[in-house]
C-alpha cells in the first residue's frame, strides 16, 4: 500500500448488461506513482481507466481521488475531472480548433485563466512536446503521433494531479509510438502520478513503479515490473506474456 494514496478504488464492480467487466477491483495509486495496466483485450483495463474519472460509471464500490469520492454527474464531477488529465487512444483533439486553441480552451473556460496566461502556458507545453511550430494548424493536419503529443499537452495545461492514459499508442503507426512514449517517460520521471493502460511492455519495464495485470475483469497480479516480467505468479499472466513477448 503506497504511503500517500491519490487514487483509491475499493470494491469496484461494473456490468455492461450481462457482462461483468470489473470484478471487485481494489487498486491504490500513490502520489507520484506510475502504474501500468496490462492484460488481454476485453479484460476491462480500459474500463478501469475510464472509471477513474467517471467516464464510465460503476455500479458498486467507491473510487476516491485525492481523498474525495467521485461525485455524481454535475458541476462537482466536472471540477474533479479538471484535476485528472486523460489521454485517449483516438486522441480526440477538438477537430474544429487549432492546436493552440485545443491546449488553451479548457484553461480559459474551466480554470478561467486570463488569455495571455493561458496562451503563454499553452505555448510552453507545446514547445515541451516539440510541436510549437504547429500551433496554428488544425489537428487533421498533424500525424497521429503529433496529435497524441498535443493531447498530452492539452491535458497537462490543466495542471492535473494525475494523468490517465487509455492505450495512448494503440492507434499509432509503429514509427510514431516512440515520440509519444518519450513524452510519457519524461512525465513519469518528473513525478507525475500516472495510470497507463498499454501494450508497450518496454514502457512498462522502464517507467512503471507497478504493473497491474488484468484478465476477465479482475486484477490478477499487482507487482513491481521486474518481478512481474521475469517471474509471473499466475498461469494467466505467464500465458499472456509468452504470447506477446516471444514472436
Amino acid at each position: 500500500m503506497p504511503a500517500d494514496p491519490l487514487i483509491v478504488l475499493s470494491g469496484v464492480n461494473k456490468h455492461f448488461g450481462q457482462l461483468h467487466v470489473l470484478k471487485d477491483i481494489e487498486l491504490t495509486v500513490g502520489r507520484g506513482e506510475v502504474v501500468v495496466v496490462i492484460g488481454p483485450s476485453g479484460s476491462g483495463k480500459s474500463t478501469l481507466c475510464r472509471a477513474i474519472n467517471r467516464l464510465e460509471p460503476v455500479q458498486a464500490g467507491t473510487i476516491t481521488v485525492d481523498g474525495q469520492p467521485l461525485p455524481a454527474e454535475g458541476r462537482a464531477l466536472a471540477r474533479l475531472r479538471a484535476d485528472v488529465g486523460m489521454v485517449f487512444q483516438s486522441f480526440n483533439l477538438f477537430a474544429h480548433r487549432t492546436v493552440l486553441d485545443n491546449v488553451m480552451l479548457a484553461p480559459l473556460k474551466v480554470r478561467r485563466r486570463g488569455k495571455a496566461e493561458a496562451e503563454r502556458k499553452a505555448r510552453e507545453l507545446l514547445d515541451r512536446v516539440g510541436l510549437l511550430a504547429h500551433a496554428g494548424k488544425l489537428p487533421a493536419q498533424l500525424s497521429g503521433g503529433q496529435q497524441q503529443r498535443v493531447a498530452i499537452a492539452r491535458a497537462l495545461a490543466m495542471d492535473p494531479k494525475a494523468m490517465l492514459f487509455d492505450e495512448p499508442t494503440s492507434a499509432l503507426d509503429p514509427e510514431m509510438i516512440n515520440e509519444v512514449l518519450e513524452v510519457m517517460q519524461q512525465l513519469a520521471e518528473e513525478g507525475m502520478t500516472m495510470v497507463v493502460v498499454t501494450h508497450e511492455m518496454g514502457f512498462a519495464r522502464s517507467a512503471a513503479d507497478r504493473v497491474v495485470f488484468m484478465a476477465d475483469g479482475q486484477i490478477i497480479e499487482d507487482r513491481v515490473p521486474e518481478d512481474f516480467f521475469t517471474d509471473p505468479r499466475t498461469d494467466r499472466a505467464r500465458d499472456f506474456l509468452s504470447k506477446i513477448l516471444h514472436h
Binding site: N53, L55, A78, R79, L80, R81, A82, D83, V84, G85, M86, F88, S90, N92, L93, F94, A95, L105, A106, K109, V110, A151, R154, A155, M158
Partner: peptide, 13 residues
Amino acid sequence: PLGQGEAARSLGM
C-alpha cells in the same frame, strides 16, 4: 464523434 464530448468532459467542462 463521441470522443469529442468525452475529451471535453475529461477536461472538466
